[in-house]
Computed example of a mutant assay.
Amino acid sequence: MTKLTLGTHPFLLGFEQLERLVERTAKSGNEGYPPYNIEQTSERSYRITLAVAGFSESDLSITVEDSSLVIRGRQKDENEGRIFLHRGIAARQFQRSFVLADGVEVGEASMENGLLHVDLTRKVPETVVQTIKIKRSE
């Protein structure tokens, strides 16, 4: 018995990329830091919120790379000359990736009370009907 995968199912033509995308997402290595929420804010819009306490806007970068939203954080080490008796707040860097579906666009980003908000919208594709002529074989 042959096991059918998404990319080899006979009714799903051209979905090999989706299978690779699922594999890439599973291997992305996103750790639990920083914690985040994803909420649906309307029928076609979403908001990703990351808890980035201690980071300033200049410590963060938001890019879209190969259909992925990538958010990176790197704090500058300003601890020279400081003596910590206890250091429980780590200044660690992070990279968090989110795979974007076709038609999802990244809107604006904002910071509020240690939370980074990134707004996304999903464009509704136009319905296209195409008629294919059948050639007569002679």
Rank of each mutant, 00 (worst) to 15 (best):
R96F: 00
V104C: 10
I83T: 09
L60M: 07
L21C: 10
E31F: 04
P10K: 05
T121Q: 13
V124C: 00
R72S: 15
I38D: 00
A51Y: 04
E80L: 10
R136K: 13
T2N: 10
L4I: 01
R92H: 09
N37I: 03
I38C: 01
S45I: 06
R87E: 11
D59Y: 10
E80R: 10
G88F: 07
V118G: 03
D77S: 07
I132P: 12
F94H: 06
A53C: 02
E43S: 14
T2Q: 10
S58L: 04
N79E: 09
H9N: 11
V22S: 05
S28H: 05
L12F: 14
E80W: 14
G14P: 08
A90G: 04
M111R: 12
F15E: 11
F55I: 08
R92S: 09
T127I: 12
N113L: 07
R24Q: 13
Q75E: 14
L120K: 06
E138T: 09
T121Y: 14
Q95T: 15
V70W: 00
Q93S: 15
Q95L: 03
G88D: 09
L6A: 02
S61K: 14
D59N: 14
E138G: 11
R74W: 07
G32Q: 11
H117Y: 12
V104A: 08
V106L: 06
G88T: 08
N113M: 10
K135P: 13
H86E: 12
A26R: 14
R24C: 08
F15P: 00
I48W: 08
S97L: 02
H117P: 06
T2M: 10
R72C: 08
T25Q: 15
I132Q: 15
Q40M: 12
I132G: 11
V52G: 01
P35T: 04
T2C: 06
G7Q: 11
R72H: 05
I62L: 12
V106Q: 08
Y36Q: 04
I132E: 15
A91Y: 07
E105I: 09
K27Y: 02
S68M: 13
S68R: 12
L21T: 11
F94D: 08
E39C: 01
T49Y: 00
S110D: 06
D66N: 15
V22F: 07
L50S: 04
G32T: 08
L85K: 01
A91P: 07
M1Y: 04
R20Y: 05
R74L: 12
K27N: 03
K27T: 07
T5C: 05
G103S: 03
E78P: 01
D102E: 13
F98W: 05
R96N: 02
L13S: 07
E39L: 03
E16Q: 12
V124D: 08
G14Q: 09
L13V: 12
V70D: 05
G88P: 03
Y46Q: 05
E31K: 05
A53L: 07
L12V: 06
V124G: 00
V106A: 04
K133Y: 13
L85N: 03
S45T: 15
V99P: 12
D119K: 06
I89A: 14
L115S: 07
G14K: 11
N37K: 09
T8P: 03
E126G: 08
G54E: 03
G54P: 04
L69N: 04
H86V: 06
E138Y: 13
E126V: 15
L60I: 13
L4V: 01
K123C: 02
N37L: 08
L115P: 02
R74I: 11
P125C: 00
